[in-house]
Simulated assay, not measured.
Amino acid sequence: MNEEGPIIRFTGVTKVYPLPAGDVVALDHVSLDVMPGEFLAIMGPSGSGKSTLLNLMGCLDTPTSGTLFIKGKDVGTLSDDELTRLRRDHIGFIFQQFNLIPLLNVIENVEFPRILKEREGGCTERCLEVLAAVGLEEELFSHTPAELSGGQQQRVAIARALINDPEILLADEPTGNLDTKTGTGIMELLDEMNRRGRTVIMVTHDQNVAAYARRRITIVDGRIA
């Protein structure tokens, strides 16, 4: 698959979670292409498979069957180390619950993925650059997550997702825990990132949030409707 092709391609992907009460089919033969630079919203009822789809895109999980290509690579053929590198170097994940590390301050949370990649610490120019991009005030840099508002924590989470300059930004309900004004600010930030060329894919149940995307898909019972 060449660089002009999809940055993400699902071909007949099924994801099954085996449970004692019986298998749960989270995704059922999904085929989907996402082109570089797209802004895609994934919608659908609770339990429809939206988060599973996003987790597969983020290499946090692998398909039960079918083929998933990310940047032209069949993820099913990659080793754990190769999956880790793909996730670390090319994908930024923004979680609904922020997933910040409680004992680390803002700077340390943001630079953490950089340390995993470069094996060195210290607040780099890149670290300050992404914090400026998300509009977080400098006096908050030494604060831990517990000392920040929900909106401030989400900005830190986005800065952390941007630190390694990923081509793909994945966002799971990025405004789900935020008030309307703060949520609008976060969406304008994601819109700006998309205008700078990043591929942005988000899961949302909110029609107003989905309106920022250039394309929307709906998932019902593990299938694209």
Rank of each mutant, 00 (worst) to 15 (best):
P45A: 10
P45D: 11
S46W: 09
G49A: 03
K50G: 06
K50M: 03
S51D: 10
T52Q: 05
L54M: 10
M57G: 02
M57E: 02
T62S: 06
T62C: 04
T62A: 05
S65N: 03
G66N: 04
G66H: 02
I70G: 06
I70A: 09
K71I: 07
V75E: 12
G76K: 00
T77K: 05
S79F: 04
D81N: 14
D81G: 10
E82D: 15
L86A: 06
D89W: 08
H90N: 15
F93H: 06
Q97L: 15
L100H: 15
P102D: 14
P102F: 07
P102K: 11
L103N: 14
L103K: 11
N105H: 12
I107A: 15
N109E: 13
R114Y: 12
I115W: 11
R119F: 13
R119Y: 08
R126K: 15
R126P: 10
C127A: 14
L128S: 13
L128D: 10
E129C: 06
V130E: 11
E137F: 01
E137M: 02
F141Q: 04
E147S: 08
S149H: 06
G150K: 00
Q154D: 11
R155Y: 04
R155P: 13
V156I: 11
V156M: 08
A157D: 13
I158N: 09
A159C: 08
R160V: 11
R160F: 13
L162G: 06
E167N: 07
